[in-house]
Simulated scan of single mutants.
Amino acid sequence: MTRTTPEAPSTTTPTPVPTTRRQALDTPSRRVRRALRSRSGLVVGGAAAVALVGGLATVGTQPALGEAIGIPSASATSTPALHGSDLDRAQAAATIATARTVLADANDKTDTRALERQVAALSDYRGMSGSAITTRIASTVDAATQVADASASQDKADADAAAAAAAQAQAEAEAAAAAERAAAEAAAAAERQAAANTVGGAKATASSMAASQYGWGSAQFQCLDNLWTKESGWNYQAVNPNGGATGIPQALPGSKMGTVAADWRTNATTQITWGLQYISAAYGTPCAAWAHSQATNFY
């Protein structure tokens, strides 16, 4: 019988791919800040340099730290244990590395001077006693925690301010666009009004309104043209010096036309609207009004 030896399982661990927003945001910088806030033990930024195991410390995969404390870095098959002064120095070096990570990541507006002083003070750990190192590590972690928290608050404040500024800029842009549209519409309306106030424009308006609103055809408009040519020459600014009759239809007083609109002094269309109403109510048709004007010299 042939014995088959099972293959050993692969020791290679695939690199995890973030599958959630929480995992995607789990950056080294965020982990440092969370670890600093917890203060539950020694915090190491970036790749772990020191691991506490059963009260001892081992140097991990960061060669610079091992060289800094005079102990070779661990290989895949050996991990030397640290204790005593070596452990104190390893903890000091790891704390400095963490603090420098916090400094590098800090918001530019955050005051980091206290943490920088703590790092500088702890950097002399090779000549310190164990108790002095422990005290300065604690002070450095406290300062790093304060900087990390202040930086996070400033990051949020900056983001809020940027969002508010963007919203304000958007509102101002929309207001400016609305003002520009309103100005363009007002200019177009003024241009249309100016055209309507000309003799030709006034006649075109009167002809259209006479046909659409009163059913008066070209014959009646001819009578209307004769009548208002005699009265005002179709001049919306005409004023009779003898009695004060005003506008195209020569209303007396001119304020009568205010029953149509308040712009009766400047708007030929308002004057024409009132004039056609008056003719319809008083004479029935423009030709009847024209006949009366010919007989009496007024209507």
Rank of each mutant, 00 (worst) to 15 (best):
D108I: 07
S78Y: 10
P63M: 07
A184L: 12
T5F: 01
S153L: 12
P241K: 03
G200W: 01
A245M: 09
S85Q: 14
M1C: 06
Q193M: 15
P286Y: 01
A281L: 11
G217A: 08
A219F: 10
A120M: 08
G84K: 10
V102Y: 00
A251N: 01
D105M: 06
A171T: 14
W274G: 00
L103T: 09
R34A: 12
I133N: 00
D142Q: 09
S40K: 15
E231L: 03
D111A: 05
A190T: 14
T98S: 07
A169N: 10
D160R: 11
S73H: 12
A202D: 02
A157N: 10
Y214W: 13
R31K: 15
A162Y: 08
C287L: 04
M257P: 01
G127R: 05
P6M: 02
Y299A: 00
T273D: 05
A176M: 11
P18C: 04
A291G: 10
D149N: 07
Q220K: 07
M209T: 09
A57H: 01
T205N: 08
D124E: 14
E116H: 07
T77W: 15
T246Q: 11
Q250N: 07
T145H: 05
N240I: 08
T273P: 01
A187E: 15
R31M: 07
S139L: 12
W234Q: 00
S212F: 05
S218C: 12
A81Y: 10
A238F: 02
T58I: 13
T205Y: 11
A288L: 02
V102F: 01
A251I: 03
P286H: 00
A187N: 13
A47D: 13
T140G: 05
G258A: 15
Q237K: 15
Q220S: 08
Q213C: 09
V50H: 01
A186L: 15
A68L: 03
A157D: 12
A152E: 14
S131P: 06
R37T: 15
G127L: 11
T61G: 13
A152Y: 05
W234M: 00
T269S: 09
S29H: 13
R136P: 02
N197A: 04
E116Y: 10
V32G: 02
V17L: 13
A196G: 06
G45E: 07
N240E: 10
L87D: 02
A175D: 11
A282E: 10
N267H: 08
P80E: 09
W264R: 00
R126S: 14
A187Y: 14
S218P: 03
Y236E: 02
A210I: 00
S293F: 09
G243T: 15
